[in-house]
């Protein structure tokens, strides 16, 4: 059933990483990405790997979940690896067949790229595994708040994001219901030619859109009834507060970055 699709990938357990301030976690993830792209040496990647392992240790996320985050990109990985292998012409030629040739440089680059992508994915999924979607939007709002000065509607954007997240399960459930109802009238959804299948979506999409608009209108009325008037002067139930561990984490992050910079100069 549609309901079984997990959205967002928040993994609700308790750990140091879960308790950390989401704003710091977002910045640290960004710094980590910067680190990965700082140089073309394997030492930088090793540093990144140490960082990821450390974060994993602090997050208590089971290895199975980490593997689950990498699995969907395996084919992308394979394609990049093959492309790099075949089209990078650098160093000794190891193997040649007509126009295609595999060089030493090609092998190192494709390996490098693969490791970099895997680290990138694991690092960023650690952020989403340990931070609930609502906290993430709160953090984004807080991080973007300086943009208010240039009249960027930060609060409105964050509100829209949290509403969208909130309604995804609701709309999924609704889709499920509408699908059942149309199936009860003999609609076929899972077989036939492509055009037939596309046509078969109409009885589902139209009621779904109608209900999404209806819900939007109801929500807007409900918000107005409770005197919602934007972000100005609004207090929150959960205020984001930095704790000592957040500063320590940030310092560790900067240390890794500095080490990467030093490595870059030395090598």
């Amino acid at each position: 059933m549609l309901k079984d699709i997990t959205l967002g990938q928040y993994f609700p357990i308790d750990s140091v990483l879960h308790r950390m301030d989401p704003r710091f976690k977002i910045i640290e993830t960004m710094l980590f990405i910067v680190l990965l792209f700082m140089g073309s040496s394997f030492w930088i990647l090793a540093l990144g790997a140490v960082f990821v392992l450390l974060a994993r240790q602090l997050s208590n996320i089971p290895m199975k979940m980490i593997w689950k985050s990498v699995k969907p990109i395996l084919h992308i990985l394979a394609v990049t690896a093959v492309l790099n292998l075949l089209f990078i012409d650098d160093g000794d030629v190891l193997f040649q067949w007509k126009l295609l040739k595999v060089t030493e440089g090609g092998i190192t680059t494709s390996l490098f790229m693969m490791i970099r992508i895997v680290l990138l994915i694991i690092g960023s999924s650690l952020l989403t595994y340990t931070t609930s979607p609502i906290l993430l939007t709160d953090a984004i709002e807080s991080l973007l708040s300086p943009l208010k000065r240039v009249k960027f509607p930060v609060h409105e954007m964050a509100m829209m994001m949290s509403i969208a997240l909130r309604f995804i399960p609701t709309l999924l459930e609704e889709t499920d219901k509408i699908m059942s109802a149309q199936k009860a009238r003999g609609a076929t959804l899972d077989n036939g030619k492509l055009t037939e299948r596309a046509k078969a979506l109409i009885p589902i999409l139209i009621p779904l859109f109608v209900s999404a608009f209806r819900r939007a209108e109801e929500l807007a009325t409900a918000m107005e009834c409770r005197c919602y008037r934007g972000g100005e002067g609004r207090t929150r139930l959960r205020t984001l507060k930095a704790a000592p561990r957040d500063y320590i984490g940030f310092a560790v992050c900067l240390l890794f970055l500095a080490a990467a910079a030093v490595l870059n100069i030395l090598l």
Binding site: K177, I178, A181, A184, G186, A187, T188, I204, P207
Partner: peptide, 26 residues
């Protein structure tokens, strides 16, 4: 035949006629 709760949310055709005819047509 199964009529769900609040079945009016499953209406989708341009006219009532076409919507009633959806099942028989299938």
């Amino acid at each position: 035949g199964l009529v769900f709760q609040y079945p009016e949310y499953q209406l989708f055709e341009e006219t009532v006629w076409k919507d009633i005819a959806f099942g028989p047509k299938n």
